[in-house]
């Protein structure tokens, strides 16, 4: 893991990869529904005007047209805020998956990262409604370098992929040339068996803060970035659940249907050493505000991660 104090906005990394890959892959086309400025893909529009398709404020038609593009052999990449590219298009995405079309969907401003626009713009259910679709791959990279690597991997992968990307600045912990493997979680630290934190990429900052607090308190554990929600790194989760006393899942998402649910589904039905607890959004529509403040208000924080794990540790010692 790279150690520095640099924080950048992961979504801003998307365009540089598209520009780089488009030079050598003439099958790459980009679809937009009037959010090319918000999603920082305007330079692609200018450099490759014949391979950029502005479809208007028409998310459903954009998604299905991407399906048509894929049926003709192109690799359409639909970039929009997650509340739009994912939240407005479920029936269309279902049919993309039904036909196993090679459409790549990027949801920026994941979770509450479009915070001040309020609950309609918060995408706290995108993992849930995308991972339920057969054939769909769901990726949750963390910092800008991992987003770049994940984007390259998703374009190489054949079949529909949804990737959520943070707008909230995240610490840069990966090297520029880091890799990304679909279906493989990443150990950021593996220092002991008191606990494990498993997080999805857009809540990296809070997961790291929780890790530091626990470390300072004298506990030693594991910190894992899940990276790929579907397929899930089941063997890794089994292994962790057999070693530690508690797993805390951390997600910029509802605790219904997201990472917590996926981990619990994975572990239900087998004997595990670990209990699983969740840090994520409750079953509520969230308030407007800066993303960091919304997360704090709903206890998506390093402090909450610390409290859950340290309390569990004390109870376990008492028992």
């Amino acid at each position: 893991m790279e150690k520095n104090n640099l924080c950048t906005i992961p979504k801003d990394a998307i365009e540089s990869v598209l520009l780089e890959l488009a030079k050598t892959n003439n099958k790459i086309v980009v679809m937009s529904s009037d959010v090319s400025v918000s999603c920082n893909i305007e330079a692609f529009h200018k450099l490759y005007p014949d391979r950029f398709f502005e479809m208007g404020i028409a998310e459903q038609s954009t998604m299905s047209a991407a399906g048509g593009m894929a049926a003709e052999g192109y690799i359409p990449i639909y970039v929009a805020l997650a509340a739009f590219s994912n939240g407005m298009t479920w029936a269309q995405t279902k049919q993309i998956c039904n036909a196993n079309l090679n459409v790549k969907i990027i949801g920026t401003h994941a979770g509450v990262d479009d915070g001040q626009d309020g609950s309609a713009h918060h995408a706290k259910e995108d993992i849930s409604i995308s991972r339920v679709l057969p054939r769909m791959t769901v990726l949750v990279p963390s910092d800008e370098n991992e987003v770049k690597a994940a984007l390259k991997t998703m374009i190489e992968h054949k079949g529909p992929v949804y990737m959520r990307v943070a707008r909230e600045p995240q610490p840069v912990i990966h090297a520029r040339d880091c890799g990304f493997t679909i279906g493989k979680a990443e150990y950021l630290y593996d220092e002991g068996n008191d606990f494990a934190i498993i997080f999805e990429g857009t809540i990296l900052k809070q997961a790291l803060e929780g890790w530091e607090k626990l470390k300072q308190s004298g506990l030693s554990g594991k910190l894992l970035s899940i990276r790929s929600i579907k397929p899930l790194d089941v063997e890794c989760i089994y292994h962790v659940a057999d070693q530690v006393k508690i797993i805390v899942t951390v997600e910029n998402h509802s605790i219904i249907g997201g990472l917590y649910s996926a981990v619990c589904e994975c572990l239900a039905g087998r004997k595990n050493k670990a209990v699983v607890k969740a840090v994520g959004f409750p079953d509520e529509f969230t308030m407007s505000g800066p993303s960091s403040e919304i997360k704090e208000a709903y206890h998506l924080s390093g402090q909450r991660i610390y409290e859950i794990i340290s309390k569990n540790n004390q109870e376990a010692d008492y028992l």
């Binding site: 459903q60 038609s61 299905s64 399906g67 593009m69 003709e72 029936a91 039904n98």
Partner: peptide, 25 residues
């Protein structure tokens, strides 16, 4: 069959995407 159907309203958008792709190629 060229297309997976079942949910009405989507086919013309596929046609738009395919027609754009045919022009591009």
């Amino acid at each position: 069959t060229d297309y997976t159907s079942g949910l009405l309203g989507q086919g013309l958008s596929y046609g738009v995407g395919m027609a754009l792709a045919k022009k591009l190629k």
